[in-house]
Design a protein around this nucleic acid. Structure first.
Length: 211
DNA sequence: TACCCGATTTACT
DNA sequence: GTAAATCGGGTAT
């Protein structure tokens, strides 16, 4: 239903609204560092994104979208600003923010979060955590802390009525402008050389230190 | 229909 | 530091 002309009409196309929408649209490896410092909200719980990883499409062997769309990965091929949730190792939910244009696969895995509000609720869903810095210091932990499951797969993060929302705090520009670290992605066996993991360098809430 | 394996976390040695 | 837990998707019969 998209014509070639429509896909070029960036200014007036029904892309995610506002400045945040524009921030989310582009190559995953470019968008990923810009997501650092954004605030993710689920009900009463919210946190600041401090660590992410980029996963692209047909050119990225480590990406779920590498071999084309499937029932599981179709969200990754949809419009940017939506949430792609999958089950890892049959145990943990992991959440990604879709960022490539509609029809082109690409997403950013959310790896760690600094708890801001609803921290008591996070503790009740993360009984194994020993410190507040461990509540969401990993992709599976992050989803557990916020209560994200496959129920939330495909939700529009920019919809104010959605159960999961993404917001930009006033100080985001300064946060993204400096002080983030880069390194290789974690836990993958393919394309391990690509430095597509990004994090706020001095955050104590990272899943792991950067090299 | 069967088998293999993973964008991880946790507990235990 | 190492291994177990656990299950749905993807690829191969």
């Amino acid at each position: 239903m998209n014509t070639g002309a429509a896909s070029q009409a960036v200014g007036s196309a029904p892309e995610p609204a506002g400045e945040l929408g524009r921030l989310l649209s582009g190559p995953a490896s470019t968008i990923a560092p810009r997501l650092l410092g954004l605030v993710l909200t689920v009900g009463e719980r919210s946190g600041r994104i401090v660590e992410v990883e980029a996963y692209e499409g047909p050119d990225d062997p480590a990406s779920h979208a590498f071999r084309g769309p499937t029932a599981r990965t179709e969200v990754m091929f949809g419009p940017p600003g939506h949430l792609y949730v999958y089950l890892s190792y049959g145990v943990h939910w992991c959440a990604n923010i879709v960022c490539h244009p509609d029809g082109v696969a690409g997403a950013v895995l959310l790896r760690a979060l600094e708890p801001l509000t609803g921290v008591d609720g996070m503790w009740s869903d993360r009984p194994a955590a020993k410190r507040e810095t461990d509540l969401a210091s990993g992709p599976g932990k992050l989803c557990a802390a916020l209560g994200i499951t496959d129920r939330n797969n495909g939700v529009d993060l920019l919809d104010n009525t959605a159960p999961v929302r993404l917001q930009r705090p006033a100080d985001h520009r300064s946060v993204s402008g400096s002080g983030f670290a880069v390194g290789p992605r974690i836990g993958i066996t393919k394309a391990v050389d690509r430095p597509w993991r990004f994090g706020i360098a001095d955050s104590p809430h990272l899943s792991r230190r950067f090299p």
